[in-house]
Design a binder for these strands. Sequence first.
DNA 1: AGCAACGCAGCAAGCGCTTTCTATACAGTC
DNA 2: GACTGTATAGAAAGCGCTTGCTGCGTTGCT
Lengths: 348, 348
Amino acid sequence: MTVTLADVAARAQVSPATVSRVLNGNYPVAATTRERVLRAVDELDYVLNGPASALAAATSDLVGILVNDIADPFFGIMAGAIQSEIGGPGGRAGGERLAVVCNTGGSPERELTYLTLLQRQRAAAVVLTGGAVEDAPHAAAVAAKLRKLADAGTRVVLCGRPPAPETDAVALTFDNRGGGKELTEHLIGLGHRRLGYIAGPEERTTTRHRLEGHRAALAAAGIEEDPRWTVHGRYDRRAGYEATLELLRRDPTLTAVVAANDSVALGACAALRESGLRIPEDVSVAGFDDLPFSIDAVPSLTTVRLPLAEAGARAGRIAMGREEPPPGGIATVRGELMVRGSSGVPRG
Amino acid sequence: MTVTLADVAARAQVSPATVSRVLNGNYPVAATTRERVLRAVDELDYVLNGPASALAAATSDLVGILVNDIADPFFGIMAGAIQSEIGGPGGRAGGERLAVVCNTGGSPERELTYLTLLQRQRAAAVVLTGGAVEDAPHAAAVAAKLRKLADAGTRVVLCGRPPAPETDAVALTFDNRGGGKELTEHLIGLGHRRLGYIAGPEERTTTRHRLEGHRAALAAAGIEEDPRWTVHGRYDRRAGYEATLELLRRDPTLTAVVAANDSVALGACAALRESGLRIPEDVSVAGFDDLPFSIDAVPSLTTVRLPLAEAGARAGRIAMGREEPPPGGIATVRGELMVRGSSGVPRG
DNA sequence: AGCAACGCAGCAAGCGCTTTCTATACAGTC
DNA sequence: GACTGTATAGAAAGCGCTTGCTGCGTTGCT
């Protein structure tokens, strides 16, 4: 039925071992033999049996990329960059690896299950992207899994995710705290004193870090924060829309709204506009991430640019062992404040 | 080093065969024995060896999803929906399958390579999303691959992609032609007579179909199209921006710009605005797809909504054999015209 | 010319699992 | 009490590939 190595060997009049060596190219094979084998492979339209090969060699060419939300360009951009470095088809690398992205949907259980599935497949490497959930038991479970993966020879790297303690996974962390601080400092510098903050889901590290940065900036400026100024929600436009309405209800005198990310900011803009408020004349808005669409918002969004593609590419190279991990296994990737039209001097 | 089935068997004082049967649950095993085995699995923290299992059983639990651009929500939304139905961790389905998305970047070679890689892994199913490239040799190569995959027992389904002739792959096709026609009819109905069209890459089926719909509408209204009114570019905002500038240069009297998709439309809006033109007073703009951000554009985008998530979910179910394929293996999924603020009556 | 060294190919032993077939044990039946 | 039937567990034969080791023919050296 299906063509096997042995069939190719028979056709090329060599032993299976030789065919295997030609295919893997890590053993000297005479040029003429090689050619004969290659011809046979071609003629028989042979396709290597991945599982068999993985079993015998005790390694596979699978590389997993875990993302929280595949429909979100934040992850898509990172995943694409990682994948392009992993090799995969068309990547810069030589060997053909199957770089696959797994969508956890932000669910801790799915994250764990995917890790198990990848462990089961004896993945060559795993890259986890985006913020982690701040649940101690879950964090411990993930750490344990990562340790086990590493033990089994799987390279683990975290991209845009805080380091995992008790683990020697390489981590490329975004400086969410610093970015958040800078962003709010910018608004304060413009004269804002009453700033609403639309945070992400409570339990995520990213949420907490950005919020901490925001608060640090307020504190540094001697602004006392009103608890009513912070609303939590999901990382999407809808949440931004609703949260903004809520903020406006709580305190109509706010002059700025800082959003957890750009999508949320877009929702905030919509809500403000529908409430008859001009941006930035009446209320300034700021986002985070600088996704491609942010510059097209009207007015264009003041935000913090995260080098998603660069970080992803680097993570990919590290996962492939083509770049040295940063000293200590941890690197912080900084964002860059992008001041655009959505932020301005407050009225009055 | 690593725990194997035999280790578990030894610990549970049963044969490896029994352990395998407990794990696969398709053979009667006494409750007490089962429990003993399960306990051993737990105690040893055993993880099945995927490749070995795939080799022995001649099937794997991998399901591949091919997308053209993982950073584009158009694909992200579909992929997410497919994945959630595939089962994967947390999906509705029972068995745990590893649903993985592969990013072809729109490159025909990568598409082929990924298919080979999936074939090599003996994937259980493969879903190809998005438009295909209209290159005869490549189409033939893909068709051949798909046939081979199907022969090997892999279920193949196309989602948002035209049917593959000479293949019995199930196809859920978007009615790009109909949507394009309806969109342009809407603009014509508003009084537009000079409409620019920013098309996608020339060689893509999606591009051609949408453009055909546009032209059909023009023809039906007796509007003779000026070749200068069509510009081709990539499916991103940048292309939309540049193409719009080009269109304006070629014919400053255009009263409407129809874009290949929403991202392109966003770029078009930016270019128009920078050229001092108001939307829709001076120029109307229309997109396609109705991605989440489209409603947030200012003015919000008139576009054609494609039921991406629904189609993806259906494709996923079909791929898993949990839903009957449509009669004839081909179904057309229609879009819905969303009239919003970016289109209006032309000036004058 | 003689011996070591080398290059290249084959043998064969697994890799860890699934599954067919067989064996055992018990319960039910006449 | 011998016999058949049913339920459950085990033995063993691979699945298709990789790789350490062996073997042989040839080249290089003295």
